[in-house]
């Protein structure tokens, strides 16, 4: 569905580690009628600063409004628009499955984290689509439990 895909912007947002940063970022997104499709937050390479990776549906607004509205926040140091193909984009999934169903998952590249009586826990990471396919595979085999992260994205160097 290319139409939907076009409305999604992927942004990497470098922010100050302040008590209200996340509230303000999410508030700005909500207020402008945007919708978060995926988010991940973690420390950046700079001390005192965090990196938020956002997948945002910009709704009826112009695509560049998401970046511009975020840039207005004093807590936001830098916004990079990483929408498009020239990026590494990874999502992580951790799932528990019945031990008998492992083979197909391992073939896809899943890694075993632990094994217990009620199932085996595996992890898998990849592009959004790959993780989606992996989830389909899991559903076919019966999932016991699953947790999936938002994306982390970095521009590819040529």
């Amino acid at each position: 569905m290319p139409e939907i895909k076009e409305k999604i912007r992927v942004l990497s947002v470098l922010v100050e580690d302040a008590p209200n940063t996340l509230t303000k970022v999410s508030g700005a997104i909500r207020r402008r009628g945007f919708h978060v499709r995926g988010i991940s937050v973690g420390p950046s390479s700079q001390p005192g600063r965090f990196r938020i990776t956002l997948q945002v549906d910009h709704g009826h607004a112009e695509a560049d409004q998401v970046r511009k509205q975020l840039e207005r926040l004093v807590e936001v140091v830098e916004v990079e628009d990483l929408t498009g193909d020239h990026v590494h984009s990874r999502e992580l999934i951790v799932a528990k499955v019945a031990a008998s169903e492992l083979d197909a998952l391992l073939k896809r590249g899943a890694k075993v984290l632990s094994t217990a009586a009620d199932g085996t826990t595996v992890e898998f990471s990849g592009e959004r689509e790959e993780v989606g396919d992996f989830v389909d595979e899991l559903t076919r085999h019966g999932i016991v439990d699953v947790a999936r992260s938002g994306p982390v994205v970095m521009r590819r160097t040529q």
């Binding site: 607004a61 112009e62 560049d64 409004q65 511009k68 840039e71 207005r72």
Partner: peptide
């Protein structure tokens, strides 16, 4: 002076 005004309503 506010770049976010560019194209917010009229491009």
């Amino acid at each position: 002076i506010d770049g976010s005004e560019m194209g917010k309503n009229v491009r």
